[in-house]
């Protein structure tokens, strides 16, 4: 099992670099997008080394494409392994999705049909990635805008099987659960109650927006009450976890994100009191 880490963190974004270098910011860890730092050198790598000297860091990827039917890109894994060896991250994570097939890379987190065939492929790919990285990964549930008539099981059933077969952990994105539940008409509580709680090591909290027909996982606004409610529901069911506010667009001053993190801390403290 992946060691747990209890704390509250933020995604490191460029507008906040100076904040993190100029003062001690009250976060327990920072998460970075792996691909932004899987480069040969230059300022990005130096900044990450400097940040790592001050904070625990989680590496969160968007391009591993663990759902690709033609396997994982070995060169990608080599680069990620080099970064992992240098940074010694808290966690290495990526998404339950695919982006690449036969040399084409969509650079988007495309949905998978939850079939037995897809399960075999995803598990084989995760095994390969974990072997290459020399450690177990966290897999994040995605937001999705398509479902498939060919599915054999729900997403949470799929995640249970993936965790059982590969030993990977879960990065539970509560906003993604809400967005997908709204788009596909399932009960988010059933989802949260159905995931393997003992495998959850990290939680993402974020905001979304209303598209023309669907909710869109935009990460461009504060965490809404609906997502806070789901976080309050799931937290008592989990062991120690690393909770993070994920903001990727319309990035506000750091203080606003720290205030949201304060809300997460308050909910977590309430969960502890309720358990006692």
């Amino acid at each position: 099992m992946i060691p747990s880490f209890s704390g509250f963190g933020l995604g490191l974004r460029t507008p906040h670099y100076a904040d993190f270098f100029d003062r001690d910011v009250a976060v327990d860890f920072l998460e970075v997008i792996s691909e932004n730092f899987m480069v040969d050198g230059g300022r990005p790598r130096r900044i990450l080394r400097d940040i790592r000297a001050r904070y625990p860091v989680a590496l969160h990827g968007v391009s591993m494409s663990i759902g690709s039917a033609d396997g994982i890109d070995g060169l990608y894994l080599n680069r990620l392994r080099a970064l992992v060896d240098e940074i010694e991250p808290l966690f290495v994570s990526d998404h339950l999705s695919w982006s690449r097939i036969e040399g084409f890379n969509s650079h988007d987190l495309l949905p998978l049909p939850y079939t037995m065939e897809a399960l075999d492929i995803v598990c084989a790919n995760i095994h390969r990635a974990q072997d290459a990285l020399g450690r177990a990964m966290l897999i994040e549930n995605p937001s999705s805008y398509l479902d498939f008539a060919s599915g054999d099981m729900t997403e949470w059933e799929f995640l249970n099987r993936v965790c059982a077969r590969t030993g990977c952990g879960l990065l539970l994105d509560v906003n993604n659960v809400f967005v997908s539940a709204s788009n596909h008409g399932f009960d988010p509580i059933a989802y949260l109650d159905g995931v393997p709680h003992d495998h959850v090591r990290q939680v993402h909290l974020a905001g979304h927006s209303q598209g023309e027909h669907l909710l869109i996982d935009t990460h461009d606004r504060p965490v809404p009450p609906s997502v806070w409610d789901l976080y309050a529901h799931i937290l008592p069911r989990l062991g120690p976890v690393a909770t993070m506010i994920e903001r990727d667009d319309d990035i506000p001053p750091l203080g606003e994100l720290l205030a949201e993190l304060g809300t997460a801390r308050t909910i977590a403290a309430g969960a502890v009191r309720a358990a006692a």
Partner: peptide, 21 residues
């Protein structure tokens, strides 16, 4: 051929793909 009951989703992914590039 993909057969999704959520046809609006195709436009979302198409828009994401092109706008990101």
């Amino acid at each position: 051929r993909i057969q999704s009951s959520c046809e609006a989703g195709f436009a979302v992914y198409q828009n994401n793909y092109r706008s990101q590039l």
